[in-house]
Nucleic acid binder design. Structure first.
Lengths: 119, 119
DNA sequence: CAGCTATATCGATGAATGTCAATCTATGTG
DNA sequence: CACATAGATTGACATTCATCGATATAGCTG
């Protein structure tokens, strides 16, 4: 945890801009940093592929073993990428028994699209 | 140039996956790399702020001088960020006289949203 | 409890990235 | 032409990041 408040929003968090001669309320650096976290999570080819696999799964879930195989990466690396996606609020992790199942957070794609159009 | 073919698409570029036991056509690593470029461009707070400023400008355009000031960055750094956004196909650059004007590529936000939902 | 399996965490390493100061290019002006 | 200005490019530096091998944790099974 620690990061997630953007994709499942709370408050606008206005920034008090100073010394700006003539402009509208530009995206504050705080907000910008928050939003950048989401895109940082998407800014890696292997993470996009992970999302693609999870998304394509009929059950809506994939366990790590299903995710490690198709990508040409070691298990620790996949685990690392999944963690980043979870921390960005994009994936949901549920452990059942020995296995961990990852699924898309519902509506998250629309939420990200919303971040974009609200820039 | 060099990068831009995703936001203004051409062909699907299928990948011949091999040795994959039982899965749907997962996002190929080629495609994944292309798409990641777009998100990489969005994965920096200062670039998000640049986009926010350009987007908020009533005229639809901003020149670099307008962009350097509100961010706490040097001119070369802003120039660098703008270049990345242009190469990602997100911003359009037009030089008129001494000044360079940057504007959002029309429809680009929707295009990016499309990339997401098509993952 | 001993051993196996699935997954996560740690530490190290090389590559990519953001930033700046200095320099270059191009346009406009005296 | 000499000079000023807007912007881009270059080179250096510090930080971040993706990846891996080794190890740790947690659940299952004998």
């Amino acid at each position: 945890m620690g990061v997630m408040n953007l994709l499942h929003p709370a408050a606008p968090a206005v920034d008090a801009s100073c010394c700006v001669p003539s402009d509208k309320p530009v995206l504050g650096s705080e907000e910008a940093q928050q939003k950048a976290l989401v895109f940082k999570a998407l800014a890696d080819p292997n993470r996009l592929r992970l999302l693609s696999i999870v998304k394509a799964e009929a059950s809506g879930e994939s366990c790590v073993c299903d995710l490690t195989e198709p990508l040409d990466l070691g298990q620790p690396t996949v685990s690392h990428h999944l963690k980043i996606l979870v921390e960005a609020g994009i994936l949901h992790r549920e452990k059942r028994g020995t296995w961990a199942y990852y699924s898309l957070v519902p509506g998250v794609m629309d939420d990200i699209a919303g971040i974009l159009s609200a820039l």
